[in-house]
């Protein structure tokens, strides 16, 4: 197909999608930028995160259905294996309907990184970076950085032990300091640069920079539970491929704040 046409089609379809999910795109909230020290950086250097907009809720099955209807190439039958493994949307009843097995307002899961990225692209949004996600997610209800609070960490770790929380509806966990809901407690979420995590192990031999992430030093020797919960997330990100889909992994989008 002529590339110009392709662009035009994509534009037309995307703008229609933007209209349809207008309600959803409205529910974004500002995360005010700042600096933080991630679980592991180089020599505990601080990372600066610019202000950005984040979806209040993870993308739901209802939202995702609209996307699949607009982009049949992203339905279960058409999606290419390069972009999503065989478990893509496996819990949906049909290729074009999630049916009665799932509630419309539960987070969509069994979506790959490619699919999540495409979805956000189409709304003029993008996936959050690991740093943006972690920065927004270190807040509890009342403070922007609750990582040293026992209650905050306990909540996350309890969730890690809870099976099938992806079946819960959006908004069923807590709304954090920024007004973002469900960062912890429903599903794990894709990040744009999930493949920036370098773990040394059977498949990754880059031991130089990130050896403190692997095995002992970060997790077990950690000063408190805070590192353990975050370690789980980093380890998980480092262990998956971009076409991986799983029933506890969903996503949400973010957007840059336009400077006028």
């Amino acid at each position: 197909m002529n590339p110009t046409f392709k662009i035009v089609f994509t534009f037309v379809i995307c703008s229609a999608l933007i209209n349809h999910i207008a309600a959803q795109s409205e529910s974004m909230t500002i995360i005010k930028g700042g600096t933080y020290i991630p679980l592991y950086g180089i020599d505990s250097t601080t990372v600066t995160v610019n202000s950005f907009l984040m979806d209040v809720y993870p993308v739901t099955n209802r939202d995702y259905l609209i996307f699949v209807e607009k982009f049949p190439r992203w339905n279960r039958s058409n999606v290419k294996r390069l972009f999503a493994d065989e478990n893509y949307l496996i819990n949906w009843e049909r290729k074009d309907a999630f049916g009665n097995r799932l509630l419309p307002n539960t987070p969509v899961t069994n979506v790959s990184w490619f699919a999540a990225k495409k979805y956000c692209d189409c709304l003029g949004k993008r996936l959050p970076t690991v740093d943006e996600w972690e920065y927004a997610a270190m807040a509890d209800e009342i403070s922007p950085d609750a990582r040293e609070k026992k209650s905050y960490n306990q909540h996350i770790l309890e969730w890690y032990e809870t099976p099938k929380s992806f079946k819960n509806t959006i908004g069923s966990t807590f709304v954090n300091y920024w007004g973002v809901s469900d960062l912890h407690g429903l599903v794990w979420e894709w990040t744009f640069d999930f493949n920036s995590v370098l773990i040394s192990g059977e498949s990754r031999k880059d031991v130089d920079k990130d050896s403190n992430l692997f095995c002992g030093s970060a997790a077990v020797g950690a000063t408190d539970l805070m590192n353990y919960a975050a370690f789980m997330r980093y380890a998980f990100r480092g262990s998956i491929d971009a076409n991986y889909t799983g029933n506890s992994l969903g996503f949400r989008c973010v957007k840059n704040i336009e400077i006028e």
Binding site: I42, N195, S196, L198, R204, D206, K209, G238
Partner: peptide, 26 residues
């Protein structure tokens, strides 16, 4: 974005660790 996507296809992980340096899979 395309670079990140291509890395994802190759299972190459990389991260900018300073303005001049990247840590990456070989």
């Amino acid at each position: 974005t395309d670079t990140r996507e291509f890395a994802a296809v190759l299972a190459v992980n990389y991260k900018k660790i300073s303005p001049m340096d990247f840590s990456h899979s070989n």
